[in-house]
Amino acid sequence: MPEQFLFAMEVILNGLMAGVLYALVALGFVLIFKASGIFNYAQGVMALFAALTLVGIMDGQIPFSHIINAIFGTELHHFGWHVPALLAIILTAGVMVVFAWLVQRYIFRHLVNQEPIILFMATIGLAYFLEGVGDLMWGSDIKKLDVGLPQGINDWIDVTTFEAFGYGFFIDNLDISATIVAVFLVAALIMFSQYTKQGRALRAVADDHQAALSVGISLNFIWVLVWSIAGFVALVAGIMWGAKSGVQFSLSLIALKALPVLMLGGFTSIPGAIVGGLIIGVGEKLFEFLIGPMVGGATENWFAYVLALLFLVFRPQGLFGEKIIERV
């Protein structure tokens, strides 16, 4: 088999793994957008905040220690304990539920029936506010996140592919576990939305608010629920990203990569978010591999946006969105 082809195969596999992360962030966007029409600019920051909180809880960091120390002249930093990963993840999920409730109670409840642009502005405000709170609570240094997921090159794949093709694929164990976790997460979400009372209510709210009210659904409850789920999805994305490249504030920038994913997949389609994420992940890796060397590299920075732009021109509804026909 020609070497180039094998290289490309490896690149595609790695692209798929990267795409899983984009898909997860995009999924958070789609959930909130479908249920409430809010384009949540803060989704990326939520992933950052969740990861920061998780590390903070695991390491027994004292939240707001900088402020406490500044006011009382103390030197507090740590509780002096370590919390096991699983317990910390559950606690962090709890924090994200509280966050969801606060967001609904103090922001969006007061903005019902407002223009989408106003809701969007509110989420921009929320994003910067949350970033600030994250900084104040847990500090701005880069943190290592290790929840016990396997790391490093997968030897089995390396050896097997070497024996088969004479070329060993390098696939990171972390990427493999991230993919498995993401698959389970999506499966659970689908089960939830298809088979539970709350899932049915969620789909109803996403379809028609008036009708949902008339069958006894509390919009407020559903919105808290959907922000909680988005918070949980953000936590999973934050864990994966954090485990890979450390928990740092640039994490919130992945939100921007989710934008082209949404333009590909459509803003209201869950399969769209997943497929869009994978396409962008594979596309940008493959493009860098094939075309990158000809144009001096670093194409990963802009490839996704150019692809999204092409989609905007030729298929504005995205891959899975309904065709938009202007009513006249």
Binding site: R200, A201, R203, A204, D207, D208, Q210, A211, V215, G216
Partner: peptide, 18 residues
């Protein structure tokens, strides 16, 4: 005010939510 994206059956089923 119906759930336009759902089937007739699913629409009627939402009536059971309460």
């Amino acid at each position: 005010a119906l759930f336009e994206g759902m089937s007739v059956l699913d629409n009627v089923m939402t009536g059971r939510l309460t």
